[in-house]
Amino acid sequence: MSPVVTVTDLTKRYGGVTALDGVSFSLAENRIYGLLGRNGAGKTTLMQILTAQNFATSGDVAVFGQHPYENERVLSRISFIKESQTYPSALRVHHVLRAASLVHPCWDEELAQQLVDDFRLPPRRNVRKLSRGMLSSLGIIVGLASRAPLTFFDEPYLGLDAVARQIFYDRLLADYTEHPRTIVLSTHLIDEVSDLIEHVLLIDRGRLLLDVEAEALRGQVLTVAGPVAAVDEFTRTGAELHRVLLGGAARATVRGDFGPTDHDRARALGLTLEASSLQDTVVRLTTATNGAAPATVGATSKEAVR
């Protein structure tokens, strides 16, 4: 099966700033990807280039096998929901939904109406008078109801309360199960979506740090705690990302290709051991000293660290 998106050595420079630096990866069909990274890491730029809204400095992108620029066949199969989307000032909520229904061939009006109710969006209100959260839910409704084979959500939750965010995650998962498609979710609220994400792409300073199955990553990064000597002994088998010292005790985050024998070893050393959450993993990886990522990686992960 050919990938939905293929990115090869993609670089984007704005004047002296390098937003993307030799990024390569591919996205498979019908999966949920988490595009993670700090502010300014290059996530939005990447999605803008994939949707032909921005231009690459060098490198190649292929979406559904073709370049997306001025390509109706490709663009009509994409939905890109971004936090910064603006709307013509004359439009009301129902106008925006009508416009989106004209554009997206797989639009589901029933779903859109149901989501309007779920998010309690006033259909006749002018878009300029919507609160930040309401504007976000309008974007989410367009993104879900468009049922585009490739859907990007770029931090779609700004200003949304916890209940509305949960509605978004639930609806996304329910609709994805019924109508599988490729979804790229760019977010800062990593813990909230960690159960949703099947594959993790982590960008930092324009470089791809991680391209790995979420399941595989879960076992790869562990937090061990115990006496310093024992922690030292254990961390030798992996790459240490972070350490906190408390008197004679240490707590370290380690990345490596761990298996059951390592767990037994930790217990034998008298260490408590737990799998790091996705959020912890991302934080540790993006703040690890001078970005030096560990050399030991699992067979399922690829590294683009230089």
Partner: peptide, 20 residues
Amino acid sequence: VNVIIQEFPFAMGLGMSRRS
């Protein structure tokens, strides 16, 4: 003027090509 300033970002956001 308004078509370019307001409708262009909206239509591009919905996935229109520049030519269309």
